[in-house]
């Protein structure tokens, strides 16, 4: 039985080395590129004609747009419109990474903490920079609740600071953990189907039924996790833009 972790291995496809740094095109990079191309195709091709009454594909791309537009408006308000292109790109990148990764023989780049933490760290730094540019010194007010007695600052400011610093950690770990766990479960159940089914047909059907159910669950998790990743980005952006 193949190792359930084998699917997460990074394999170079086109080895490139530049100045002693390994920048090979790996399976991870390949699938990121495929996801970017697929997402662009799904968004651009159906709206070429821009029919008044949308067809299936146009309805799909319009509903993607609408979900994120509503999300940005509900969570950030009108000030968030400027950041819509970034939030939308982020959503499509994570969503297509999650969903394409469910197809057998593909690679799920969102199951790597290096990828999710890079995204989360960029979001964290960008949101902090936006907050500082917009509010200057008052941005630090985010770390001290209004109306609390001054002496509590000794305890409250470190707590708020740690809470703020833990945002990129929880944002990236949540996505990475969900994706990794889901794919390991799928692989282990798949292994049961093969090893049990090779000897007895009936017991092999039991993990098979579980596998079908878990696959459906994983499709849902893939979409929900992309949604949560994006909505938390919006919430963080809202905090930086409006303080509280």
């Amino acid at each position: 039985m193949a190792s359930p972790l084998h699917q997460f291995e990074i394999q170079p496809i086109v080895p490139i080395e530049l100045g002693g740094i390994d920048i090979s095109i790996t399976n991870s990079a390949l699938w990121m590129a495929i996801a970017a191309v697929t997402a662009t195709a799904v968004m651009v091709l159906p709206v070429r004609r821009g029919a008044l009454i949308p067809g299936r594909w146009q309805a799909l791309s319009e509903s993607f747009y609408e979900i994120i537009a509503n999300m940005v408006r509900d969570n950030v308000g009108t000030a968030g419109r400027r950041y819509f292109p970034f939030v939308f790109t982020l959503f499509m990148f994570v969503l297509f990474g999650n969903v394409l990764g469910l197809i057998p023989y593909t690679f799920t780049y969102t199951s790597h903490i290096a990828v999710t933490f890079s995204l989360a760290a960029f979001i964290f730094l960008a949101v902090t920079a936006i907050g500082i540019v917009k509010h200057g010194f008052r941005f630090l007010g985010l770390f001290f609740p209004h109306g609390a007695p001054a002496w509590t600052a000794v305890i409250l400011i470190p707590i708020e600071l740690i809470s703020y610093l833990s945002r990129p950690v929880s944002l990236s770990v949540r996505l990475f953990a969900n994706m990794t766990v889901g794919h390991v479960i799928l692989k282990v159940l798949g292994g049961f189907v093969v090893s049990l089914g090779a000897f007895y047909a009936i017991p092999g059907l039991l993990p098979m039924a579980g596998l079908v159910a878990v696959t459906a669950l994983e499709v849902m998790v893939a979409v929900i996790q992309a949604y949560i990743f994006t909505i938390l980005t919006c919430i963080y952006l809202n905090d930086a833009l409006h303080l509280h």
Binding site: V76, G77, V221, I224, I228, N238, H242
Partner: peptide, 26 residues
Amino acid sequence: SGNGAGKGGGSDIGAGIRVAVDLVAG
């Protein structure tokens, strides 16, 4: 300005993982 989050927070398992990760991250 950011009143009310969007629709659908996720399943119960999703909510559990979310809460657990939030706690552990701190």
